[in-house]
């Protein structure tokens, strides 16, 4: 009885009638309605935003890569400049050393020549003084001799 009631033509849990195709049509209509009211507009907005975000991310990545390249470039330049500076300092040090040495050499040689000159002068003067002395001695001896002779 229960089962027969379930499948009864009028009423029952399993009473299948024109509700079925009409409901199917209703669902198809609902699909089109929701597509134009919900899925299309929301999808457009969401996908536009996703596109926008994706574009931003790629752009940011590109910029980051550029920045990294520039940074590496700068680093290179810095290293180069540093080594150049070190070289310049080195060269300058060498130059100054050379100049110092040259100056010392020059001073030494100058001192040597003036010493030599002084020595020669001294020698000259000594010899001339000696000559003078011997002359004077000669004159004095002559004088002495003369006096001795005249007294006698």
């Amino acid at each position: 009885m229960f089962v027969s009631h379930l499948f009864a033509t009028e009423g029952g849990l399993f009473d299948i009638n024109a509700t079925l195709p009409l409901m199917a049509i209703q669902v198809v209509v609902l699909t089109y309605l929701l597509n134009s009211l919900f899925f299309k507009p929301v999808g457009k907005v969401v996908e536009k935003r996703e596109e926008f975000v994706r574009g931003n991310i790629t752009e940011a990545k590109k910029k980051l890569a550029e920045v990294e390249k520039l940074e590496a470039d700068l680093q290179n330049q810095l290293l180069e400049a540093r080594s150049e500076a070190a070289q310049i300092v080195n060269e300058a040090e060498k130059d100054s050393e050379k100049l110092y040495k040259e100056a010392i050499e020059l001073a030494n040689s100058e001192a040597n020549t003036s010493k030599e000159n002084a020595r020669l002068e001294i020698e000259n003067q000594t010899s001339s003084a000696r000559e003078q002395l011997s002359q004077q001695a000669d004159a004095l001896s002559e004088l002495i001799v003369n006096r001795l002779i005249h007294q006698t």
């Binding site: 009631h5 009638n17 509700t19 409901m23």
Partner: peptide, 25 residues
């Protein structure tokens, strides 16, 4: 298993199903 029958021409449908579905949809 009791239904509110609507008669359209010579076909009958379950009115309560359509009523609630129209309200909810």
């Amino acid at each position: 298993g009791q239904h509110l029958y609507w008669q359209i021409g010579n076909i009958s449908i379950h009115g309560q199903v359509f009523l609630t579905s129209w309200i909810l949809l």
